[in-house]
């Protein structure tokens, strides 16, 4: 880690004023401190925003506004999140360990970097994300954890967040504040696919800060929602794949459907094609399978992750069948 200055921001305006061009905002540090120590990232200053207001409040219209510095553990334990947004509570609890959830902030979770081991290996591996134009050692390397959707010949890394998969499924909105003022970006538009510039991961502008996340009012499909994560061991591991699903039925037909996938792409993947295919259909396992297969038509597996296609299919069918309950 190169020498740096530590600044504790007194409020949001203070943080924005002091971050400068080479500074970084510091939340829980569970990813950034590690990246700095491994020399994957460099910063001249860290502006600590982890002690800024961390409120969770209901807003007009019935949604929820979550400050960016709220800890993952606090959000997962919040009574409103547990009762009205179960998919989000479960996704948060699926991520990392209790210690890390106590440290990690909501804003930092959204901005965490891929766990591709070639990205982390600053001394020994080629990575277009870390060093544009260097090449990608994951393409022909150990790519069991890598993407099957939306990747490019420059980068096949996945986004590691569980929380973001639930936020994508919920149509959450990211609140931003920066030198040019405040703006809001749907979570689904916040992360970008790698294309020819895998070093660009989000639409965040220089000096811009995530200030909060807005959840929509709960609907029937959000109230009846679940998150299932499949990993190499039963706890404290990143997802091979994950599925966030929400479903509501009336008269034996699907009236609302929400599906998002994790561990398959450089961003949380909203399975819009599958959702479209299921609206108005009877909620049967066969229909669920046909729909998710339609979503995966463009999947391009690598040498080590073709199993993800079948795994996404089976997990999606299992989640939706469970949500359909006795009606499936």
């Amino acid at each position: 880690m190169t020498p740096l200055t530590y600044i504790r921001a007194s409020d949001r305006a203070d943080a924005l004023a002091r971050v400068g061009t080479d500074g970084r905002f510091l939340g829980g540090g569970t990813n950034l401190v590690d990246l700095l120590r491994q020399n994957v990232e460099q910063a001249s200053a860290l502006v600590d925003i982890s002690r800024l207001d961390g409120a969770i409040r209901e807003i007009e219209g019935g949604g929820l506004l979550i400050d960016a510095s709220v800890k993952n553990a606090a959000l997962a334990a919040h009574p409103i999140v547990r009762s009205r947004y179960p998919v989000l509570a479960r996704a948060l609890l699926a991520g990392a360990s209790a210690q890390i959830r106590n440290m990690a902030t909501v804003g930092g979770n959204i901005l965490q970097r891929t766990r591709c081991m070639y990205f982390y290996d600053a001394d020994g591996a080629r990575c277009n994300k870390r060093q544009p134009g260097a090449g990608c050692d994951a393409l022909d390397g150990f790519n069991r954890y890598h993407a099957i959707l939306g990747a490019s010949d420059q980068c096949v890394a996945t986004h590691p967040s569980d929380m973001c998969v639930a936020l994508a499924m919920l149509d959450a909105v990211v609140h931003l504040s920066g030198p040019a003022g405040e703006r809001q970006v749907p979570l689904m538009d916040f992360h970008v696919l790698p294309g020819d510039m895998p070093q660009i991961e989000t639409v965040l502008k220089p000096g811009e800060l995530i200030t909060g996340i807005e959840l929509p009012p709960p609907s029937d499909a959000i109230a009846n929602s679940e998150y299932r994560k499949v990993r190499d061991r039963s706890s404290y591991a990143f997802a091979l794949i994950s599925v966030a699903g929400g479903l509501s039925l009336a008269n034996g037909q699907v009236t609302q459907i929400r599906i998002a996938l994790g561990g398959v792409a450089a961003k949380p993947w909203r399975a819009s094609r599958a959702e479209h295919a299921l609206l108005g259909r009877a909620p049967t396992p066969d229909a669920f399978l046909a729909a998710i297969r339609e979503e995966l038509v463009d999947a391009q597996p690598l040498s080590g992750n073709a199993f993800k296609i079948g795994l996404v299919e089976r997990t999606t069918v299992a989640v939706l069948t469970a949500l359909a309950g006795a009606n499936a």
Partner: peptide, 23 residues
């Protein structure tokens, strides 16, 4: 998790916490 300590009563990892953050 070998470095787990209690920070204001909550369990955290001391390796990923900067000492300055504990002020």
């Amino acid at each position: 998790g070998a470095c787990t300590v209690l920070l204001d009563g909550d369990r955290v990892l001391a390796c990923l916490t900067l000492a300055a953050q504990a002020e």
